[in-house]
Structures are given as structure tokens and as C-alpha cells.
């Protein structure tokens, strides 16, 4: 008998007999009374409490803010999506106050060293955010691959305030995740951190040292 069958059989022929299936009432997770303003405030408070930054922007001026942020950090380059409107807009703008724009359009194997050692910052879109925990929802794809939000020391994420959900439970339901998940989905709540050395917080242990949210209102 295969191990699979051995295990399944042991579970199925349980000596204690059938187990009763309890009811699960998820209503304790529901917070449906937060206004947009409350959601924005909570999101900001939460993500800042874990060392993230939020910048309030409009459709018209987010690029100015981005340029400013990158310049103060002396970023030499910025990794952008190829097709997403964020990437399009950045390329079309042709601004000289932005650093060199890089596009992730080749398999990682061909430029891994460069990505790990030379890229200073990246910008990605999000699929919304979660106010209660201060989280960004990302579904990486071929346009915005997984490592964009992980390897560069600064990760900038664009979040539409209108896409802020109250809780993870709400977001997952509203976006119908049950229907199918991408190869990789993420909740990101702050920059990479560790407290493994004597409970002292240190940022950027493996992933970005900084997480900057451009909130478009």
C-alpha cells in the first residue's frame, strides 16, 4: 500500500468514529461600518506603525512626489512595469527628474545578479489594500513579476484609496478569491523586518528596507 493510501485509510477508519462538523460563524470578522475616511486613516496608522510610509497623491501629481522621493534617496534607477498604466505613464512622461527606468521583461535567470545588486527601487501597482491591518494586496504576474516587490531596497506601491477594503475577510470575498488564485498572491504590510536578535527590530533583513505607498485619492 502506498503511503498515501496508508495515511488516508488511517484517517478514514478512525477508531473514534465520525466527527461532528461544527458550525463556523465568521461574523466576528466583519467590520462593515468604517467610512472611507476611517479606512484611509486606519491604513495609514497601521502601515506607519510598522515603518511603512504613506504619501497622499492625486492622479495629477503622484509622479512629482515619486521623483522627489527617489531623488532624496539618490536612487540611480527604478524598476517599472512594462504594460501597466503606471509604467506606461512613467515612460511617456519622459521626465528628466526621474532616474533611469528599468523594465523587467526577461526571465530572472538572465539578469539575476543585476536585479539583486544594481536595482535601487521598484514601483508596482496593487489590487487594493486592507485598512484594518495596513496591508497591500499584490498579485504578481508577467508584467509585474514576484521579485519586483522583494529584491530592490525600496519598494513603492501605488494604491487607490477607493480600493481600500476594511478587512482581509472582506477583500477576499469581494474579489472572489475562492474562484481561483494566481500562482503567487501576497499581502504586504511594511518593509521586510526581523526581531530575531534580542527582539530588536531591524528593517530590510532580506527584502526591501523601505515600503512607500502612493495613495491616490
Amino acid at each position: 500500500m502506498s503511503s498515501r493510501e496508508t495515511i488516508l485509510q488511517r484517517l478514514r477508519n478512525r477508531t473514534g468514529g465520525e466527527l461532528t462538523v461544527p458550525e463556523c460563524d465568521f461574523s466576528v470578522l466583519v467590520r462593515d461600518d468604517w467610512s472611507t475616511k476611517e479606512r484611509i486613516e486606519r491604513f495609514e496608522k497601521m502601515i506607519e506603525s510598522v515603518h511603512g510610509e504613506v504619501h497622499h497623491c492625486t492622479e495629477d501629481m503622484w509622479m512629482d512626489r515619486l521623483a522627489e522621493l527617489l531623488n532624496t534617496r539618490g536612487a540611480r534607477n527604478l524598476l517599472i512595469p512594462k504594460q501597466h498604466e503606471i509604467g506606461q505613464a512613467l515612460r511617456d512622461a519622459g521626465r528628466d527628474d526621474l532616474p533611469e527606468l528599468l523594465i523587467y521583461d526577461e526571465p530572472i535567470e538572465s539578469w539575476q545578479g543585476h536585479l539583486f545588486n544594481e536595482v535601487d527601487a521598484s514601483i508596482t501597482s496593487t489590487r487594493g489594500g486592507i485598512a484594518e491591518t495596513g496591508s497591500l494586496i499584490l498579485w504578481p504576474n508577467d508584467d509585474e513579476p514576484r521579485l519586483m516587490s522583494l529584491v530592490p531596497p525600496v519598494h513603492i506601491a501605488v494604491l487607490k484609496a477607493s480600493e481600500l477594503y476594511t478587512t482581509f475577510h472582506e477583500a477576499m470575498k469581494a474579489q472572489n478569491w475562492a474562484a481561483g488564485m494566481p500562482t503567487n498572491a501576497l499581502l504586504i504590510s511594511g518593509p521586510s523586518k526581523t526581531a530575531d536578535i534580542e527582539q530588536t527590530l531591524a528593517y530590510g533583513v532580506h527584502g526591501p528596507k523601505e515600503l512607500i505607498v502612493l495613495m491616490i485619492e
Binding site: 470578522l29 497601521m46 510598522v50 523587467y104 521583461d105 526577461e106 526571465p107 530572472i108 484594518e132 491591518t133 495596513g134 496591508s135 504576474n141 508577467d142 513579476p145 514576484r146 521579485l147 482581509f168 475577510h169 488564485m181 494566481p182 500562482t183 503567487n184 498572491a185 501576497l186 499581502l187 504586504i188 504590510s189 511594511g190 518593509p191 521586510s192 523586518k193 526581531a195 527584502g207
Partner: peptide
């Protein structure tokens, strides 16, 4: 909601990573 708060008193951890498959043909990493 229970795990991270019980463990380290965090509302959530920095990353919640959900993996549902290997790299697809058109994907560039993974």
C-alpha cells in the same frame, strides 16, 4: 487574524505569501 496576534502581537506579519502554482510559461520568475 489569530495567528500573528497570538504569536508576536502583530496585527499581521510583513508578508503573507500565497502560492498556488509554479512559474507559468509567460511568467519571468518563480
Amino acid at each position: 487574524a489569530l495567528l500573528t496576534r497570538s504569536a508576536t502581537g502583530q496585527h499581521i506579519t510583513t508578508y503573507f505569501n500565497m502560492i498556488s502554482g509554479p512559474r507559468k510559461a509567460e511568467e519571468l520568475d518563480g
